[in-house]
Simulated scan of single mutants.
Amino acid sequence: MGSSSQAIRYPVATTGVGNIDALNRVLADLCTRRNPKDGAALTLRRLIEEEARDLSGEAFARFMDHLYEHITTFLNSNEVSKNLGALRAIYELIDVTISENALKVAKFSNYMRAAFETKCDP
């Protein structure tokens, strides 16, 4: 029951700007002080897995660069909701296996270290 409503709520386009738009929508849904929308974290995971499978190496690298840019922006924000959105994205994606796994884990660990060293809001 849950997976069908998630597919309706978050349609994922697999070509062109659509995949970036889908990523932006899901990341926006993760940026809340409360619990994020149902299925947002799982949808993010599935989107990354689909893009890793469907895009060429260079296109997928650009897609991931866009994700990393968002996470950096969210962590540097003074808005707690954006900080939480970035941490939720990292939490959901840390164990997703992709071609650039070592790079992903290194980036995520650096992001988290920087966030916890500089953020004081509980």
Rank of each mutant, 00 (worst) to 15 (best):
F108G: 07
P122G: 05
G2D: 13
N76F: 01
G18N: 03
T72E: 11
E50M: 13
A86H: 01
E100L: 06
T73F: 02
T73N: 07
I94H: 07
A86F: 01
G57M: 04
Y10I: 09
G18T: 03
T43C: 11
R34A: 11
R33D: 14
M112G: 01
T72H: 07
A106N: 12
A114S: 15
Y91I: 01
S4V: 10
C31A: 15
N35L: 13
N78M: 00
A102I: 10
G57E: 15
F60W: 02
N19C: 12
G2N: 09
Y68V: 00
E69P: 00
F63N: 09
G16E: 03
I90Y: 04
R46C: 07
I90C: 05
E79Q: 12
L44C: 08
L42A: 14
G85T: 05
E58C: 02
L84S: 02
G39M: 07
L55Q: 15
K37A: 15
V105G: 04
V96I: 15
I48Y: 02
S99V: 09
M112K: 02
G18I: 01
L27E: 06
Q6G: 11
L67K: 01
P122M: 02
E58N: 06
A102N: 14
S3H: 11
I90K: 04
I90R: 04
E79W: 00
S56C: 00
A89G: 08
V26F: 01
M1N: 08
K37L: 14
A52C: 15
V17R: 12
I94K: 08
K82Q: 14
S5Y: 05
T73P: 00
